[in-house]
């Protein structure tokens, strides 16, 4: 279970508060206007910078002393998810060992996970030789291999077309089901949120609201969400 315990994030005039929990295995779209702090919230959970007050807990354990790489989570950014000078297999292999010290069994697991995201046999290529959708698949293959209990997705498919995005969301659901992971996914696309289902966190007006059932939220949107959706 992920718990944000009285978390307040402040930077200059920017302020964001969050105080809620997400049960293990939940799928959680994070929506809200741009600049509201969706990515910032994920960055704090991932440990890139500390909140000004409050704590982030996983299964009751405080994460604040842990560096980003030691936290029980994987994060996929909007871009720069792959090192361009390393091969696809090496990029995925970093998920097993940050120093790429893999034995034969390790490399076999890398190849396996590439196969599971539909990239069988492409391990020797460099990322530049892949399409945008394939690059997203490489990042997901690494998430699969790391098998951390929490997945943070920061608009990872924003650059893809609608059909490809739907496909990737399906893959995310598969990966999450396979690893039993809890998923927090930032998106500005209501349809993506609905497709992922689960419970949605609405970030607006300095507040990350507690997760609400996604379909219900979009059926009867509160004032802030209506303004964002353009239905106000």
């Amino acid at each position: 279970m992920l718990t944000l315990e009285g978390v307040v994030i402040e930077q200059g005039a920017f302020r964001l508060a969050a105080d809620w929990s997400v049960r293990a295995g939940a799928l959680v779209p994070v929506v809200g206007p741009s600049g509201a702090g969706k990515s910032t919230l994920l960055s704090v959970i991932a440990g890139f910078f500390p909140p000004s007050s409050g704590r982030v807990l996983w299964d009751g354990k405080d994460l604040s002393p842990l560096e980003p790489g030691a936290r029980p989570l994987s994060i996929v950014f909007q871009d720069n998810n792959l090192f361009p000078h390393l091969t696809v297999a090496q990029n995925v292999g970093l998920g097993l060992s940050p120093g790429l010290k893999l034995d034969r069994a390790g490399w076999r697991r890398v190849e396996d996970s590439l196969g599971r995201v539909g990239l069988q046999g492409l391990g020797a290529r460099k990322p530049a030789a892949l399409s945008g959708g394939q690059q997203s698949r490489v990042a997901l293959a690494r998430v699969l291999l790391r098998a951390r209990p929490l997945m943070l997705l920061d608009e990872p498919f924003a650059a893809l077309g609608p059909a490809l995005r739907a496909e990737m969301l399906g893959l995310v659901r598969d990966v999450a089901a396979e690893t039993g992971a809890t998923v927090l996914m930032v998106t500005h696309e209501p349809r993506d949120a609905l497709r992922l289902g689960g419970e949605t966190v609405l970030v607006a007006d300095g507040m990350a609201a507690a997760p609400t059932e996604t379909a219900a939220l979009f059926d009867a949107p509160p004032e802030t969400l209506r303004a964002y959706l353009g239905e106000g």
Binding site: F48, E67, P68, G69, I75, N80, F83, G95
Partner: peptide, 14 residues
């Protein structure tokens, strides 16, 4: 690339 490396726990020589 720093955030990615940090999230993967890459430090020191790696």
């Amino acid at each position: 690339r720093g955030p990615l490396a940090s999230s993967l726990g890459m430090r020191g020589w790696a």
